[in-house]
Design a protein around this nucleic acid. Structure first.
Lengths: 139, 139
DNA sequence: CTAACGTAAAACCCGATGGTTGTAGATCAG
DNA sequence: CTGATCTACAACCATCGGGTTTTACGTTAG
């Protein structure tokens, strides 16, 4: 079951959403308190629609939520999502800390035939190369 | 204009580099042990050049380093960069954790050098730049 | 020397992103 | 009702990102 590629996509969305200074600032602002979208838009040197898109990206990643109040849409940061990113980083670091076989499962490896490197180091990847496309470099 | 585009760009690069499952796996692999680029390339269902680009992105973000050994280029993960991401997240979360006025001061102050918050825990002595970019404030 | 390997870099494709403007629907103020 | 605001959404454009292939170069092996 390829370790649930959904979680990989979720991680992609989280990190991608954070890979923009404007969006990080929006997260910071909305963690402090609720702000309407137009309120946020006034703070940034770009159009309302642009900020709207940024909020949509953040919402898609679960980093903020919107709740309607009258004609305003108030944006609120989601601290749990930040904790989730923390956890993802810890998973990455766990490998380096020494839990290699555990990470192989946790990491969103798109490889079904992933081998568990019981060896101390130097995981040799050739033996499972049969599963993926074997490209011959004849030229 | 944007005061700290340097650190913002660095954060952009870090998060962007992590916003890809292949790259996260490369980080994981190279934190475990050194691998040559072609070694890594054999593990992923894509061309060598594609993996090479991924490694370049990671290197640009400081998440891995390369050291040449003969004709091979060995890639090694950099755990410090992961800690840096951790710290960036903590900065974001610090707002929500209750230092709202503190963040407001940081956001508003052009010179945050005078006051330092008692840093919570394992903030290793890496250079910190938590002055956010100041854009124009609406009213 | 010659062949194979590992790497680098260029040229190219195509979909995604980030920005713009414009239009339209709701909602609140007078 | 009329007008101002807030929001949503579509169309459009430029650039970037991730992938491919191809070519070239340095290094190791035979």
């Amino acid at each position: 079951m390829v370790v649930d590629q959904g979680s990989a996509e979720h991680a992609d969305r989280l990190f991608h959403a954070l890979a923009d200074a404007t969006r990080r600032e929006i997260v910071s602002l909305t963690l402090t308190g609720e702000h309407s979208v137009s309120d946020l838009a006034r703070r940034f040197p770009m159009s309302f629609a642009a900020v709207q898109k940024h909020v949509a990206v953040l919402e898609g990643a679960g980093l903020v939520t919107k709740r309607r109040q009258g004609r305003e849409q108030r944006v609120r940061g989601n601290a749990d999502a930040l904790r989730e990113v923390h956890r993802l980083l810890d998973e990455l670091a766990a490998v380096w800390r020494g839990r290699i076989e555990r990470m192989a499962a946790i990491l969103a490896a798109p490889d079904p035939a992933d081998d568990k490197p019981a060896d101390n180091e130097r995981v040799d990847g050739r033996e499972h190369a049969h599963d993926r496309d074997r490209r011959e470099e004849g030229s």
